[in-house]
């Protein structure tokens, strides 16, 4: 199996890492870089728990080849808090609106919400629902997640 050195920006910092060519981005993040905030819910790109941002857009890292992040910008949940450890407004809203129960879908859900608001700062409720429709949650019924996102976009 071939090895290759990947260079990309991860949570604002440049990284260079030697990796096997068959790895998924999720394996690279979790197993090599020990960024365990990105979760594997299905391994088939169907549940969104492994969502990360690649150049600002959401990708399912569990089916995304690690090789393809070379030269690109990756943001994981660990990259959302600032240097002092302050929570991102979306993270704060998720906490305050009860959008977190078991929390397994939460990192992916927060990143999907971030991608949505970065592109569309004032989404309608329909657009919010559409924006997180690729991220499954079994605990919350999504309602408080939707409320949290609407709160950040100044719509509650």
């Amino acid at each position: 199996m071939g090895k290759q050195t990947l260079s990309f920006t991860l949570n604002g910092e440049p990284v260079s890492v030697e990796t096997e060519s068959h790895l998924t981005l999720l394996q690279l993040l979790r197993d090599k870089l020990e960024l365990i905030g990105t979760k594997e819910g299905c391994g088939m790109g169907e549940c969104g728990a492994c969502t990360v941002l690649l150049d600002g857009k959401t990708v399912n890292s569990c089916i995304f080849p690690a090789m393809e992040v070379d030269g690109k910008n990756v943001v994981t949940i660990e990259g959302l808090t600032d240097a002092q450890g302050n929570l991102h407004p979306l993270q704060k809203a998720f906490v305050e609106y009860g959008a977190v129960q078991c929390g397994f879908c939460t990192p992916g859900m927060v990143l999907a919400a971030k991608s949505l608001l970065d592109e569309n700062p004032k989404p309608t409720e329909e657009e919010v629902r559409h924006g997180i429709a690729g991220n499954l949650c079994r605990c919350t019924g999504y309602i408080q997640i939707i409320q949290a996102i609407k709160a950040v976009s100044g719509q509650i």
């Binding site: 960024l35 365990i36 905030g37 990105t38 994981t76 949940i77 660990e78 959302l80 808090t81 929570l87 993270q91 998720f94 906490v95 305050e96 009860g98 977190v100 129960q101 929390g103 939460t106 990192p107 927060v110």
Partner: peptide
């Protein structure tokens, strides 16, 4: 808010 929500929302849990 749930006591462990911050841990979960930051991916530290």
């Amino acid at each position: 808010p749930k006591m462990d929500a911050e841990e979960k929302v930051t991916g530290k849990a």
